[in-house]
Design a protein around this nucleic acid. Structure first.
Lengths: 145, 145
DNA sequence: GTTATTTTGGGGAATTCTGGCAAAATTTGA
DNA sequence: TCAAATTTTGCCAGAATTCCCCAAAATAAC
């Protein structure tokens, strides 16, 4: 599980240090720790563990989407995505396409969201968060009895 | 189950000693005792056990909230949150974002609230309690036959 | 084949985090 | 009421993290 919000900077080569706590969370459950990065729903980059990706692929076969839809999904999910291992200093390269999609330049906010974590441009996340925070209590009321 | 009200102070590194009775309550049911801290409804920090968090996550899949709402919920719940184990002296770190949200500086009031406990700024809790006490009897009349 | 340019790896400083000792305070029991 | 046990807290030192910078290696361009 992934928790917490972290602000980091890209170095001048465009690398991002993954927060050590998130690396630990991945390493806890994965034999050879890797991250799958792809495009997220609200203009951010999502990072999944390998096993989460397997689950997503398996879940697609439950009949909720057509074969055609599944093919299209896999093209974007896989095509825009990248499976990356971090180096000895805990850094990964963010693919340029994903950086452009998420509007990332240098200042990054990393958000733990339970089953995945998200990589945002800091300014974009602050705007988003302000709006999302307003409706949080209402949703929380439904989810937490 | 969590009961009682306790007043503690943060140390200069921002750590809080969890009252020993509450630690016992967690340890009673959890194999490796940890607390999940996140933002509560009335400007306080809530602490849940791991198993309570699992239940909340599972409950989210019952269709009462949309996928979009679920994502936004996980961003705030997880992103503002932290899963912490206490150290040998029974202390945990309170994330800065949560301290700011709850208006916490140094003096803390910890309130056992059955399925969770809450961490308040002492002054804020005293104000809140005074107001909430007034409506207690009315609600209690409905709840307790 | 040589020169630019990009990619990869790592050293080391500043800062933050973590762990533990021991004093103070509180609770418990006699 | 007093002593013993437990809990809380202030303080300090060692460890870890991140980030900036530079060097080596690989790749591309001329």
């Amino acid at each position: 599980m992934f928790f917490g919000t972290y602000t980091h900077n890209l170095d001048d080569a465009g690398r991002l240090t993954i927060p050590s706590k998130l690396r630990e969370s991945v390493a806890e459950h994965e034999h050879s720790p890797r991250l799958f990065l792809t495009c997220g729903a609200e203009r951010c980059i999502v990072a999944y563990t390998q096993s989460r990706v397997s689950d997503i692929m398996a879940g697609m076969r439950d009949g909720s989407v057509s074969r055609r839809q599944a093919r299209e999904f896999k093209r974007i999910f896989g095509g825009e995505g990248a499976m990356e291992a971090w180096d000895k200093q805990g850094r990964i390269m963010l693919p340029d396409t994903l950086k452009a999609y998420a509007g990332i330049s240098r200042e990054i906010t990393i958000v733990g969201a339970m089953d995945c974590f998200e990589i945002w441009d800091t300014a974009a996340y602050e705007r988003h968060r302000k709006a999302a925070r307003a409706s949080y209590d209402k949703v929380a009321g439904k989810v937490i009895q």
